[in-house]
Design a protein around this nucleic acid. Structure first.
Lengths: 209, 209
DNA sequence: AGGATGTTGTGCTTATTTTCCCAATATGAC
DNA sequence: GTCATATTGGGAAAATAAGCACAACATCCT
């Protein structure tokens, strides 16, 4: 199903390349070498070249990569040479912060609706939206053909809500709930849990204080 | 510097084990096998056993792992058998959501202060805090001996603020700014950027719609 | 025109990570 | 007590990922 020609770890680095290249472009840079990009990302230059070479020959020997071209290539490869509409389920503090985050639109991800099941929140304005009853979510997703959902509900609700999203047609879920979802293999899931990162770092901290 | 005896990928999985074990404990479970835990996490049981065996022999052959014991061991290994105080720098929508997130305290990470450089925000209440001028941050960090910081400032400010945090004594940074920080090797950094995850998933989405 | 320098793409090597497999041990049924 | 079943820990193998090194090519300087 997924393109096993390209390792997932490689796909995972492409957004980092793209992000840095866009940054460089705003600074007016036109060309960059794998060595320079590697330095900014703290990676090995050969790794960057090899990653990119899996999709084509984008550089020029002796010169490097033309930044606008490489950005266009990466956006095409990642399917972000378009705008993806997304839903947010969960209108708590996190859901509100997400709705107000300008980074999504800048990068071609546009929030299209936000849902909750709490009568106290349904109907209330958040950013440019009115919170909708989550019971209308499946219908909305189906009628609009939305494919991406952000899950910002409590852990206890996450699995059930995720299943509803998937059965309505959602195929990629960004899960902020601190739990592992069990979903069909053709559904992409990525997790964001700050506690996991903090505990990971705490391992390396001295037991002082 | 970092304990290369234990691969970082292994350390990165321990918080997931811990999270799931705590979940099981609240459900009243006392014992679990690597096979059962692996199923919940969608991992290979041998991987879980090998990861754990790097730190000791915590299981009983023929039986499995005693959940409360394993939780205690993992908390000790990860240095989260204590409470870590943290600072948040950046009092925008994200900073506010972080301050109000109950998950930190539940897991032994307590926000101790929040800072911003915007006069319109300094002095305003957020959750149980008053936003402090970031110019007091280094002094506060030094005097309290804080080691962990959450960076929730715009990309343009991230590197400079991170350097100030480090020179004040911060040794672990959870970075929400969409950029790679360049810091001394003895400083732990973890990144959270939803765009990176969304682009990663978009790679696998069909170009329909 | 030619040499010095810089850079890519990739074959091959090395390193790391994952998985297989099984001896050793535990539990429960009869 | 013995057998069937369940499970760990870890050596060995397999799979995956990262990095080296170099031919090929580009640019610039003189």
């Amino acid at each position: 199903m997924t393109d096993k020609q390209v390792p997932d770890v490689v796909v995972g680095r492409l957004p980092l390349y793209l992000r840095t290249l866009k940054q460089l472009q705003t600074e007016g840079r036109r060309v960059i070498s794998s060595a320079q990009l590697a330095k900014l990302l703290h990676l090995n230059p050969a790794q960057i070249r090899k990653d990119l070479s899996m999709f084509g020959e984008f550089g020029r020997q002796g010169v490097g990569y033309t930044i606008p071209d490489l950005i266009a290539q990466l956006e095409r490869i990642l399917h972000v040479d378009r705008t993806w509409e997304m839903i947010v389920v969960g209108a708590g503090a996190l859901g509100q912060a997400l709705v107000n985050y300008p980074g999504f639109e800048i990068n071609g991800f546009r929030i299209a609706a936000i849902y909750d099941n709490d009568p106290a929140k349904i109907g209330k304005p958040i950013g440019r939206f009115i919170v909708r009853d989550v019971q209308y979510m499946p219908e909305d997703v189906r009628s609009h053909g939305w494919r991406i959902g952000i899950l910002a509900v409590p852990e206890a609700a996450a699995q059930a809500v995720a299943e509803q999203m998937v059965s309505a047609g959602i195929r990629a879920i960004l899960c902020y709930a601190p739990t592992v979802l069990t979903l069909p293999g053709n559904v992409q899931v990525q997790y964001i849990d700050p506690i996991v990162h903090l505990q990971h770092m705490a391992f390396y901290l001295e037991e002082t204080d």
